[in-house]
Amino acid sequence: MTDTRLMHTVGVRALEWLWAHRDGFRLEPDVDPEVGFLERFKPVGELALICRVLFREGVAGSRQADLARRLLDHTWRHTLDGGRMLVRGQRIEPLSPIPFEVYLPYKELGYSEPEVERATVLYHRLDSWAALELDPTRRLGLSAFQRRFGLTPRIAEADIVGSTWLGRTPEPWTVSGHIAYDVTHTVFHLTDWGEHPEGLPPHIADYLATWLPVWIDDWLDLERWDLLGELLVVDACLPRPTLDERAWQSFAAAQQPDGAMPAVRTMPEGEPDEVFDMIYHPTLVAAFASVLATSRSLAELTHATP
């Protein structure tokens, strides 16, 4: 099993980079409507989700927790303009689930914008919102978020799992990069982003216990750090995580001294905003994998103590 300090350090450094580059979390209010104002919300929502995991697991050091809190404050106040940008997003594209999905983790952390909530409750009544043609993993995530918000999902999560790729436990040698991302997100949604590992149905947990080591081995050798990080999160969501030492050591070695994690192989070059857009995600994933793996590792130490 991997040294807990190594896994923990990856997350500490990732958060330092995210804080130093917080201005990269930016919207484009004047963007061409054809391009879509909502496109740039995704990084903000992901940041909030992962900061929430960090607080929840309680394994962050004081510096890390402080940075996470400041990042949330910064993005809520500046990037989202205190939630008003989410309202604006809902007005531009009322049926898009994105503003709601970004809002939920902020709400769970104590931020509030009543108008987003009013609109969400209204849209939830619409057949149209339930009829949106989302792919099964995305639909699973939306239903999970509706449940967390306090609504009863119109489409029950249990009824969606079987439509996902992972839910059907297919031939493991057919996995491609795109399928692998579907797999990781199905696990994130079923476990509430690692909060409830028992949310994985046993047949899916068994399937992953058998095949995840192969996928980790493969994407490690391909140096696909972004996907590898997500697979390491999945490992930490399993009943018996492997916390694979070879994968974690390589993952940690790929991280830059300033905490940035390249998406693939080595660091990209370009203008700061371009570079941010290419590496914010793997760096967030590194923080996510780090906090969950550290938490599981400490839990095992606790259980092992006589």
Partner: peptide, 14 residues
């Protein structure tokens, strides 16, 4: 058998 099955998946992927 499970390890050989894993190796099969790895070989196909590669």
């Amino acid at each position: 058998p499970v390890d050989v099955a894993r190796g099969f998946v790895r070989a196909v992927r590669r």
